[in-house]
Amino acid sequence: MVMAIMSAYTTRSMAQADELQQLALNIEKLTQFKAILSDMKKGYAIYQQGYGLVSNISKGNFDLHHVYLTGLMAVSPAVRNNPRVAQIIEQQSGLMNEYKRYAMCFRQSGSFAAGELAYFERVYGQLIHQSNINADQLADVATAGKLRMSDDDRLTAIERIYSQSSDQLQFLRWFNRKAILLSLGRSKDLQDTRMLKSLYGLK
C-alpha cells in the first residue's frame, strides 16, 4: 500500500515536473515570439518610413516633371509677341492675294494656252499647299497646349517658318514677273502691250 502511494506520488511529481518544464518552454517560446513581433514591428515601421520617403521623393519628382511639361505646353509672351509671327501672317496673306490676282490676270490676258494656264495653277497649288503647312505649324507653335516645346525651340521654329514663308513669297513674285514678261513679249502691237500693262498694273 505504501509502495502504491509512493509510486503514485512519484508519478504525480514527475508529471508536475514535466508540466513545469513544458510551462518554462512555453514561456521561453512566448518571450521569443514577443521579440520576433517587436522586430517585425520595428521592421514595418522602418519600411513605412522608407516607403513614405520614396513615395514623397517620387511624388516630388513627378510634380517637378509635371510643372516642367506643363511649362512646355504654355506659350510665353516672348513667343506670342514675336514680330515674326505677324510677319509670317502678312506673308501668307500676301501670297494668297498675289496668287489670286495674277492667276486671274493671266487667264484674262489671252497670252497663254490652256496647258500653260494649267501649269500655272499647279505651281500656285503647290505654293498654297506649302503655305498652308506653314500656317498650321505656326498655329501649333504659337498656341498653348498644342506642342511640348521650350521657348527657344518655339522661337527657332518660328524663324524657320518665317524663312520658308519668305522664300515662297519671293518665288511667287519671281514666277509672276517671268510670266508677265512672257505675256508682254507675246503682245502683238503697242495697243496690246498697253492693255496688258494696264491689266498687270504696270506703267
Rank of each mutant, 00 (worst) to 15 (best):
M3W: 01
A4G: 06
S7W: 06
T11S: 15
T11E: 15
T11V: 04
R12M: 07
R12C: 03
A15C: 05
Q16C: 13
A17C: 00
A17W: 13
D18Q: 06
E19W: 07
L20T: 08
L20V: 00
Q22H: 09
Q22Y: 07
L23N: 01
L25K: 14
N26K: 04
N26Q: 09
N26R: 04
E28V: 02
K29M: 09
L30G: 09
L30N: 08
L30R: 15
T31M: 06
F33K: 07
K34D: 05
K34E: 13
L37S: 07
L37E: 14
S38L: 07
D39V: 02
D39I: 04
M40S: 09
K41G: 12
K42C: 00
K42L: 14
Y44S: 11
Y47L: 04
Q48P: 02
Q49T: 05
G52A: 03
I57T: 05
G60F: 01
F62L: 00
F62W: 08
F62E: 12
L64F: 00
L64H: 00
L64P: 00
V67R: 10
L69A: 08
L72K: 00
M73C: 07
A74E: 15
V75A: 08
S76C: 10
S76R: 15
N82T: 05
N82F: 04
V85T: 03
V85S: 10
Q87R: 08
I89P: 01
I89N: 14
Q91P: 01
Q92C: 14
S93V: 06
L95T: 10
L95M: 13
M96I: 10
N97M: 03
E98D: 14
Y99D: 10
K100N: 04
M104L: 08
C105Y: 09
R107L: 13
R107D: 03
R107P: 04
G110V: 11
